Computed example of a mutant assay.
Amino acid sequence: MLSCGFATSVWAQTSIKLGYTGIADFAAGFVAKDKGFFAKHGLDVDFVQIAINSNIPAALLSDSVQVGGPTPTVFLQAVAGGLDLVAIAGTTVTSKSIKGVGVVAKTGEPIKSAHDFEGKVVGVPGIGASLQVLFRQWMKEKGADASKVRFVEVSFPTMNDVLKAGTVDAVVTASPMMDQIIGTGTGYNVASFLSELPEGKPTMLYSTTREWAVSHPTEVVAFRTALAEAASYVESHQDETRQIIGNYIKLPPAALQHVEIAPPAPVLAAAQIYWWIQVMQGQNMLETFPADKELVP
Rank of each mutant, 00 (worst) to 15 (best):
Met280Trp: 05
Phe30Glu: 07
Gly200Ala: 00
Glu118Ala: 07
Gly183Pro: 03
Val48Arg: 15
Pro202Arg: 00
Ala144Asp: 03
Leu256Asn: 05
Asp63Val: 01
Arg224Lys: 14
Ala78Gly: 08
Gln283Ala: 11
Pro176Ala: 03
Val45Ser: 03
Ala228Asn: 14
Val121Ile: 15
Lys142Thr: 04
Ala213His: 06
Gly5Trp: 08
Ala291Gly: 01
Gly183Cys: 03
Gly119Phe: 11
Thr8Asn: 09
Ala24His: 09
Ala254Asn: 09
Trp138Glu: 04
Thr167Gly: 05
Gly185Ala: 04
Met1Gln: 12
Lys142Pro: 04
Thr8Tyr: 12
Val234Gly: 01
Val65Cys: 04
Ile98Leu: 11
Leu18Ile: 06
Ile111Tyr: 05
Asp84Gln: 03
Leu61Phe: 12
Val267Ala: 14
Val171Tyr: 11
Ile98Lys: 04
Phe193Ile: 06
Pro176Thr: 01
Arg150Glu: 12
Asp145Glu: 10
Leu286Cys: 01
Ser215Trp: 02
Glu118Ser: 04
Glu196Lys: 15
Pro266Val: 05
Val31Trp: 04
Arg210His: 12
Ala144Pro: 03
Ala32Gln: 02
Leu295Tyr: 09
Met159Asp: 07
Gln281His: 06
Gln257His: 11
Pro198Leu: 10
Ala87Ile: 04
Pro125Gln: 12
Ala129Pro: 01
Gln283Thr: 11
Gly102Thr: 09
Ala87Phe: 01
Phe193Arg: 09
Gly282Cys: 05
Ile277Leu: 08
Thr173Ile: 09
Pro252Val: 10
Ser15Gly: 08
Leu197Trp: 04
Ala230Gly: 03
Gly166Pro: 05
Gly69Ala: 13
Pro266Lys: 06
Gly246Leu: 08
Ala28His: 02
Asp116Ile: 02
Thr173Lys: 09
Trp11Ser: 14
Asp145Arg: 13
His41Glu: 13
Glu118Leu: 04
Ser195Gly: 15
Ser175Asp: 09
Phe6Gly: 11
Lys112Glu: 14
Tyr248Glu: 06
Val48Glu: 13
Ala28Ile: 00
Ile181Glu: 10
Thr107Gln: 15
His115Thr: 12
Leu163Trp: 01
Thr73Glu: 05
Leu83Pro: 00
Pro266Thr: 04
Phe47Ile: 07
Val31Ile: 09
Ser62Arg: 15
Asn284Gly: 03
Asp116Arg: 02
Glu141His: 06
Tyr188Trp: 07
Leu131Tyr: 11
Gly36Phe: 11
Leu76Lys: 08
Arg150Asn: 13
Tyr274Arg: 15
Val65Tyr: 05
Lys96Glu: 11
Ala27Gly: 02
Ser236Phe: 09
Val267Lys: 13
Lys120Ile: 00
Gly68Ser: 05
Glu118Ile: 08
Ser192Thr: 07
Ala12Val: 09
Thr173Trp: 09
Pro125His: 10
Phe47Asp: 08
Pro57Leu: 10
Val279Lys: 15
Val168Asn: 02
